[in-house]
């Protein structure tokens, strides 16, 4: 199996789906001539031409709406946001148009569009460029929210998202673009709404998604040296949430730590914990603990930024608490 970066896995998915279905097109800032702000769309303009790889003005509200409108009449747009921070300008189109269209038209008009781009913090980009918004979109009925953590998942999930008949919020990780992994060639589809056990273990469950999968796996590695076997559950899809996999793991380990990049208040982890306390109450030997980003705007200073982010040490401290260790 070939080894690809996360970036190239996404590129491969785009290329394959655009080849497969001529209703699929990509639009966004710098996706064409510039080859993509993060080079995800590298080579696509040359291959598919300017009608299918569309450079837009810096006009998030406008081109998100263009994507929704095109999807309403049968195209399958992939709208790239340079980052999800900029997509705040487009929230009206995502929430009031994309998510509602099928319902308020009584099922007549769907919006088969993918909105994608990197979310969360990279390095020292400060407050306005370092935000994780998955819980915002996951709050909205009508949207699906997908967040792959590995190159293989990135390819398989993007292909599924493009083929999905509903609007999909597809949040990538800027810090993941260079991550390498084995990626199946060709028709590799990962169903939306299915979590994945990235590492098996019986002592504690670490629930995570996107970038925090790496954090959790590192923590699990260190814990293993200490005799603690952590199970790492990668949600992969935030909405619809794969509660079955979550509950099965917690039922096995009886202790759980939920890790996410975003802020704690009303975050994704809050939803996960709600599911666990309700449906796995009798399985719990300890309260579920969350490891999240600090409840502050992201600071620029390197040390402060590090302190604000979830990291393996914080995960291990949380694991020790749910295991009642020292």
């Amino acid at each position: 199996m070939p080894t690809l970066t996360y970036r190239d896995a996404l590129n491969q998915a785009l290329r394959e789906e655009m080849t497969r279905d001529d209703r699929v097109f990509l639009m966004g800032e710098e996706v064409g001539v510039y080859q993509g702000a993060y080079k995800v769309s590298r080579g696509l303009l040359e291959e598919f031409g300017p009608m299918r790889v569309v450079d837009t003005p810096i006009t998030e509200l406008g081109f998100a709406g263009v994507g929704v409108g095109a999807a309403m009449v049968g195209l399958r747009p992939i709208v790239e946001f340079m980052t999800w921070n900029f997509a705040l300008l487009a929230v009206d189109q995502l929430v009031n148009s994309a998510a509602k269209m099928r319902y308020m038209s009584g099922g007549q008009v769907g919006v088969p569009a993918v909105f994608r781009g990197p979310g969360g913090a990279a390095l020292q980009l400060a407050a306005q460029h370092s935000q994780a918004f998955e819980s915002w979109y996951a709050h909205i009925p009508g949207l699906k929210v997908v967040m792959p953590a590995t190159p293989a998942d990135a390819k398989g999930l993007l292909k599924s998202a493009i083929r999905d008949d509903d609007p999909v919020i597809f949040i990538e990780g800027e810090m993941l673009y260079n991550v390498k992994g084995e990626v199946p060639e060709g028709e590799h589809l990962i169903p939306i709404g299915r979590a994945d056990v990235k590492r098996e273990g019986g002592d504690v469950t670490l629930i995570c998604h996107s970038k925090t999968v790496t954090v959790a796996l590192k923590a699990a590695e260190q814990l293993a040296g200490d005799g603690v076997h952590a199970e790492v559950v990668d949600l992969r899809t935030i909405r619809p949430l794969d509660t079955e996999t979550v509950l099965a793991s917690v039922g096995k380990t009886h202790r759980c730590v939920v890790v996410e990049e975003g802020w704690s208040f009303a975050g994704v982890g809050a939803q996960v914990v709600d599911v666990i306390q309700r449906d796995a109450f009798d399985e719990l030997d300890a309260p579920v603990i969350r490891v999240t980003g600090a409840d502050v705007p992201m600071p620029y200073n390197k040390q402060l930024e590090k302190a604000a982010k979830a990291d393996p040490a914080k995960v291990i401290a949380a694991v020790n608490r749910v295991l009642y260790r020292g």
Binding site: Q277, V288, R290, V291, T292, K314
Partner: peptide, 18 residues
């Protein structure tokens, strides 16, 4: 009852000592 207060999780989770 919910076993732990939901707010201030970041602070809580970053506390090194139980």
């Amino acid at each position: 009852m919910p076993p732990a207060p939901p707010a201030a999780a970041a602070t809580e989770s970053t506390a090194p000592a139980p």
